[in-house]
Design a protein around this nucleic acid. Structure first.
Lengths: 140, 140
DNA sequence: TCCCATATATGCAAATTGCACTTATTATCT
DNA sequence: AGATAATAAGTGCAATTTGCATATATGGGA
């Protein structure tokens, strides 16, 4: 009984991105594309939200890969373990209970550190793109 | 008997980046930062080279993560399996034999596809950075 | 009642990459 | 001559991230 086709998760598309955090690697020490993490932090800096809402917002972000709900919920739980967000359950009139996540000052600091990493990554990307376009203009 | 401290591999630093290729995932379907692959393809578009040379060139690329020789050699072997490069052993007057890698037309096409992916990634990065800086100017 | 949207979560597998280590050739220092 | 270092390439395992399949629960509409 797979849930594919329901709610979010438009099907097709792929993965992703992610982080740096953690138990072992420090910021900048992470591997992978690492974009879901900073996007979540950005959205939470702008406004407190629950997971499902964040997933919906990310879907409109122009990502060429799909954002797995699994991934989002996992990061949110991890952020809380790390003290970057706090959460509390909210019951609704309609629908199941949900967790509202709020960013902490530590979370904001973490996001700032992320911005520095992304700036470096962007500069490198610019460099590669410029040189790559040169390689095609000149060399054939 | 670890070889750390010799030749390349300046020690310290961390990981990194990577690819998309593959046996399973298609281009754009890859995860992770995925930068070593396009950088290697770029360098090979500019000039045929052997692994050790490519590692040296990459070290001067302003990467904030270390480039593991292992990773480079692995990609080169994989590129050959995929038909993106060809290689042949060269014996030198001095030093051990080495493989010279040359990019194929397929490899150039692959690099072009990579450039498209990197452009998208760059646009997304610009978007996140702009919005992230806004979040800090306004919200506190 | 069954299906769908909302909402969150776990477990396993796939993929990338770092790290430790191995092998081999030649040059240099002691 | 022997040790050390640089050049050159590689294997195997573990860590980490992430996708996919699945589980679970509430409530609305056909």
């Amino acid at each position: 009984m797979c849930m594919q086709g329901h709610g979010l998760r438009p099907s097709g598309g792929h993965h992703g991105d992610c982080e740096c955090h953690g138990p072992h690697g420090e910021l900048g020490g992470g591997r992978y594309e690492n974009l879901v993490q900073p996007i979540l932090l950005l959205l939470l800096c702008e406004k407190s939200a629950h997971g499902y809402e964040l997933i919906e917002k990310m879907s409109g972000f122009g990502l060429d890969f799909s954002v797995e709900p699994t991934t989002v919920y996992r990061y949110l739980r991890r952020f809380e373990e790390q003290g970057f967000v706090t959460s509390h359950w909210e019951t609704q009139d309609a629908g199941p209970a949900r967790r509202l996540y709020e960013i902490t000052p530590e979370g904001k600091g973490y996001f700032k550190a992320w911005l520095a990493v992304l700036r470096k990554r962007k500069d490198l990307l610019d460099f590669i793109l410029a040189r790559g376009e040169d390689a095609f203009d000149l060399g054939k």
